[in-house]
Amino acid sequence: MTTWSQRITRSRVWRSFFRHGWPDNPLDRSLVMTTNIFFHLHPVKVSRASLKATYSFGLGILATILFGILAITGTLIMFYYVPSTERAYEDIIFLQTKVPYGQLMRNMHRWAAHGMVLVVVLHMVRVFYTGAYKPPREFNWIVGVILLLLTLGASFTGYLLPWDQLSYWAITVGTNIAGYAPFIGPDLRMMLLGGVEVGQNALTRFYALHIMVIPGALLLLISLHIWRVRKDGGLAAQRKAEDSLNIVGEETL
């Protein structure tokens, strides 16, 4: 067993991917995090206090996982969905009744969307009550507020896409509410709908926003948000624990 696993890990291909050894020592464990574009958003070491489940309830990571589920199921639904007033409703019915696991994909997308709004709000509440928005984390709070608005925007734009009675009137009402915003309201409504009422232009615009603009912005800002957590000194819980220098490394785990 050791021979073939060693043959793989010593191969040139493997070593061109991973420029560090197996993570069973402090150096290689640090290198796992710092040499990987995804992991480097996360700190190399975290304090024991911030690992306590009831401190953060894992709400931030839950929101990120839900975003991942939404991105994957959403992409799969795009394989069967055409954003046209002629086809949108039929395509959704077809997805639910004829496509294997189509109902599952749509339900996962829908419930993950509801869950993401819930989790993002709870995450915000947690950050507020633990005082984690205070300096030096005030910038990240602002990023978080933008992420909340983008999450709501993704939900709102996705609402129209099934093109049933519920969607149609929800967006009619929603965009009329937007129309009441002072000064920019009427123009904002026209920009969103691409016309004076909900029609093909609105469906096209909401589709583009839902599958490209908002998810792209979310991806960018989620990356910034997580990276900023590390740059601002990890979870806020760490501060209390710093006195005892109880930093979790491999020895204590």
Binding site: L76, F79, F94, K98, V99, P100, Y101, G102, L104, M105
Partner: peptide, 12 residues
């Protein structure tokens, strides 16, 4: 397996 079944074209 779910992905393969989901993406397999459905012929009416």
């Amino acid at each position: 397996s779910v992905l393969a079944r989901f993406l397999e074209p459905v012929i009416e």
